[in-house]
Amino acid sequence: MAKLVNKIELGDPSTKNQNFVDVNLKLLCCRYWYLDLWDCHDMVFPFWRIYWNKNEGGELTLQNKVYKMAPDFLYIISPFSSFSTRYIKRHEFDSGIHVSGKNLSERHNEAYFERKYLIHFFAHFNLGTPFDNVYPGIFRVALTDHLKERLVYLTERLKIENHDFKLTFNLKLQAFVKEAISNIGAELWKTVNIDDRVLAVLRFIEANIGEKLSNSELAEIVNMAPNSFARLFKDEMHITLHSFIQNRKIAKACEIFEHTNDTIESISFALGFSDRYHFSRVFKSITGISPALYKSGRYTS
């Protein structure tokens, strides 16, 4: 009878240890729409986004830099980036979030809609620590033949089914996201070299996001004085420890909103807020919109 070998070193001929960075990809949504209005201003959301427009006319703005979206590029937006969108052909609003459109299906003549509307693919996702903690920004990635092939498959399937996805679609979407992210290169990866002590605390925060976490408790994990750790954290993450915890709690709230019908009140208590009103104030201060509007889904693209 064969025996299970549970010692990794017995199956590896090399004696050299290897260290890998885990990529914990969690998909939140993926859609293929036609838009006739895309006036969204100063949006801040706690997850990654990939945008692709099949035709010209879309614009992204980040810190006064305008990205004129071209069909040959993907546009990847990191968490907590304050950005705006616009469809040039129909521009009506200079503030707020205004989207008008619908998902494309097999019933639509896509060539006809492409002449009249902005054809827009988007996916929202998280990558886990440390990748969800990179600097805010928009990364433009050239659409390689391989990425284009995957994108054609995804958009065609989304026209057929956009609710209960089969295993093949999930695997291909995950592969598409990971390949797109990997093509960002050094511009992104230089931001994830985090001090081991900070990384240990980041992982603790993620595992205990529903608790009320104090500076002293977190500093004790890495045997540091609270003030010294607070300075180290700010130097490494370019954000205060308190603000970071608030951001991650709101990120978790958004994830819960995406996948459950839990009430705002129950989510606020589950994440360690004193009451719904405190939660709502923090949520709006970070995202720019109320939890009720987020829950409604009207912000989506």
Score class of each variant (00 low, 15 high):
residue 218 L to S: 06
residue 211 E to R: 12
residue 210 G to T: 02
residue 208 N to F: 07
residue 228 S to Q: 15
residue 208 N to D: 07
residue 216 S to W: 05
residue 213 L to S: 03
residue 229 F to A: 04
residue 229 F to V: 06
residue 212 K to I: 05
residue 223 N to W: 13
residue 224 M to C: 10
residue 222 V to D: 02
residue 213 L to V: 05
residue 223 N to I: 09
residue 226 P to Q: 08
residue 231 R to H: 15
residue 224 M to Y: 07
residue 213 L to C: 04
residue 212 K to M: 06
residue 225 A to S: 12
residue 231 R to E: 15
residue 231 R to L: 14
residue 201 V to N: 02
residue 213 L to W: 01
residue 215 N to Y: 07
residue 200 A to F: 08
residue 213 L to K: 01
residue 230 A to D: 13
residue 222 V to P: 03
residue 211 E to L: 11
residue 216 S to G: 01
residue 213 L to P: 00
residue 225 A to L: 11
residue 206 E to T: 07
residue 223 N to F: 15
residue 218 L to K: 04
residue 217 E to S: 12
residue 226 P to D: 07
residue 224 M to P: 03
residue 213 L to E: 01
residue 225 A to W: 11
residue 209 I to P: 05
residue 217 E to P: 00
residue 213 L to T: 04
residue 223 N to V: 10
residue 200 A to T: 11
residue 205 I to R: 03
residue 221 I to E: 03
residue 226 P to F: 02
residue 227 N to Q: 14
residue 203 R to M: 06
residue 221 I to K: 11
residue 213 L to Q: 06
residue 205 I to E: 04
residue 209 I to A: 00
residue 225 A to G: 09
residue 206 E to K: 11
residue 207 A to N: 14
residue 229 F to C: 08
residue 206 E to I: 00
residue 215 N to S: 14
residue 221 I to C: 05
residue 223 N to G: 13
residue 205 I to H: 05
residue 210 G to H: 02
residue 203 R to A: 01
residue 207 A to Y: 11
residue 230 A to T: 11
residue 210 G to M: 05
residue 207 A to M: 10
residue 202 L to W: 04
residue 212 K to Y: 10
residue 215 N to D: 13
residue 218 L to T: 06
residue 216 S to F: 07
residue 222 V to G: 01
residue 212 K to S: 09
residue 227 N to F: 13
residue 227 N to L: 13
residue 210 G to N: 01
residue 220 E to G: 05
residue 206 E to H: 09
residue 213 L to R: 00
